[in-house]
């Protein structure tokens, strides 16, 4: 499977797929990002990110149950794959490694 770069927004979406374990679908992720991260996103950008992640093999999807709340329509539930988890971890490791390289005094004083 093709391993490719994980974009910043994709990473956030992928993390949320992980957080909302087996209950993540387009709207739930959109709402979560909007409410908990105070970041304005549209449904379509989240979906686009999800499809892209699916293409990259970081998530897989299946159609879940229907609910009257959705007018009887089923949801597509996204589940993070092992590859996705690895991608997230390697991304985090990379970040941590870089963090450790920043000397503390390089930050502006007041932030410490």
């Amino acid at each position: 499977m093709k391993r490719s770069h994980l974009g910043e927004f994709e990473e956030i979406v992928l993390i949320w797929v992980g957080i909302q374990h087996e209950a993540a679908y387009g709207l739930s992720i959109t709402n979560a990002i909007q409410e908990e991260m105070n970041r304005s996103v549209t449904l379509s950008s989240v979906h686009t990110a999800l499809y892209r992640l699916e293409e990259k093999g970081y998530v897989k999807s299946e159609l879940g149950g229907a609910s009257t709340k959705r007018g009887g329509r089923r949801k597509r539930i996204f589940i993070i794959t092992n590859a996705g988890r690895e991608a997230l971890e390697s991304s985090r490791e990379m970040r941590m490694r870089l963090w450790s390289k920043i000397a503390k005094n390089h930050f502006p004083k007041w932030e410490l």
Binding site: Y25, G26, L43, H47, L63, A66, R70, R73, R74, K75
Partner: peptide
């Protein structure tokens, strides 16, 4: 189906 569901 899934998208119309989300929309709705």
């Amino acid at each position: 189906e899934e998208l119309l569901g989300d929309f709705y």
